[in-house]
Amino acid sequence: MPKVTMRVNGRAVSGEVEGRTLLVQFLREGQGLTGTHVGCDTSQCGACTVHVNGAQVKSCTVFALDVDGAEVTTIEGMANPDGTLGRIQQAFQDHHGLQCGFCTPGMVMAAAALLAENPKPTEAEVRHHLEGNICRCTGYHNIVKAVLAASGQDVSAIAAE
């Protein structure tokens, strides 16, 4: 079987995979990184979102072999070095931006990609950026609020808190 090598959350990893092995399978089954979730089979829910070389992708729609040599970041790599919640994670907790937690890793990874390229997004920009991430629990209110808060913007005027 072919071998794939990549850096995941700063750690060099490698493993034997099949041609059809998806990045998400490599991460979950090969590396035990089960924080990245699979919520659909048509590449729409976004629960499997990770970063490949800094860009957000759906790891269920990328073959592991196609990102050979890449730098991959998953939800497990988003905390601060001391283990405390990173800025975006903390904002999600502070603003109740998650309920069941299943879509959450994808939401956090999508939000991180947005803020990296657009540090002060508008509400509309946040909503547009989350187009490919489905949440069934929150009605998105607190997710959008959390992303705005993580960007350092004042969210105190947003209804209901």
Binding site: V57, H129, G132
Partner: peptide
């Protein structure tokens, strides 16, 4: 699509 689709 969405940002992830646009990145692939």
């Amino acid at each position: 699509g969405d940002p992830a689709v646009r990145n692939r």
